[in-house]
């Protein structure tokens, strides 16, 4: 069976760990040429090297998604290297310490919104500008089950993921006729380094698991399969959708 992203050029942000890394590895196995973009160039280079060692094609790219010039440069580097940009997974995102609204800090708001919201906008802007010159493309924005639900203490994160969902659907309507598909992917709680650093108490992990009717955390690989589906031509009629892979959490 032929690989489904054969020779497609893909940009993945926040690609050095967690869901982004799982996407980079899976997409590369499916034949994609992957721009592994991360705020940490060392980590991006290390993953790109591991992908190349496994027989794939990848380059590491330094990219702070809160800086438009860096995002534009990342797209330009992929175009310079491989000539085009077919798909993107805008995955870079952060959390800040949980606290109720009245206890939250202004600096944390600005830091989180800059990465999770402004970063997705800047990424889409650069990607869409390139895709318009090629007649199409597919963009997957990392939203969250918290694009649908709330979680006490996580109001900045929730607000940022509602924003990603809204931008995703708006952009899909704006660029549908240009052949650019734009979808959101909404994971539940996934066993990633970000989650494992934020939640260490076993009782708290069990409580997180219990949010999902399937009573487990998802794996980065399961989210990568969903991202692959959206990015690939199998999803050629899907745009403006929020694909939810959350063990049933939002159905509750």
């Amino acid at each position: 069976m032929s690989r489904e992203l054969e020779n497609k050029v893909v940009l993945i942000t926040g690609a050095a760990s967690g869901i982004g890394a799982a996407c980079a590895e899976l997409f590369a196995r499916e034949g994609a040429r992957v721009g592994v973009a991360d705020v940490s160039l060392d980590a991006a280079d290390a993953l790109a090297a591991a992908i190349r060692e496994a027989g794939g094609e990848a380059i590491g790219i330094a990219c702070d998604v809160t800086r438009g010039a860096q995002v534009d440069a990342a797209v330009a580097q992929l175009v310079a290297t491989w000539g085009r940009l077919d798909c993107a997974v805008n995955n870079a995102g952060i959390t800040v310490p949980l606290a109720p609204i009245a206890e939250l800090e202004e600096a944390d708001y600005e830091r989180l919104m800059a990465v999770n919201v402004k970063g997705v906008w800047l990424s889409m802007r650069a990607e869409i500008r390139q895709m318009l010159t090629q007649g199409g493309g597919s963009i997957v924005n990392m939203a969250s089950a918290l694009s649908h639900k709330v979680h006490p203490g996580a109001s900045f994160y929730v607000a940022s993921k509602f924003a990603v969902a809204g931008m995703t659907r708006t952009a899909a309507v704006e660029y549908g006729e240009s052949g650019i598909r734009i979808n959101g992917l909404c994971p539940g709680n996934i066993r990633t380094p970000m989650l494992e650093n934020a939640v260490t108490d076993p009782a708290a992990v069990a409580a997180l698991q219990a949010l999902h009717p399937m009573n487990r955390l998802g794996t980065p690989g399961e989210i990568a399969q969903a991202a692959l589906w959206l990015a690939s031509d199998r999803a050629s009629f899907t745009t403006g959708a929020l694909l939810t892979a959350d063990g049933g959490w939002t159905a509750r």
């Binding site: 659907r169 399961e222 969903a226 959708a241 892979a245």
Partner: peptide, 17 residues
């Protein structure tokens, strides 16, 4: 789709957006 359940998956060309 092993972590997907209870989801309403749109294959709608974007009409619902």
């Amino acid at each position: 789709a092993s972590f997907m359940t209870g989801h309403q998956m749109y294959v709608d060309g974007g009409v619902l957006a």
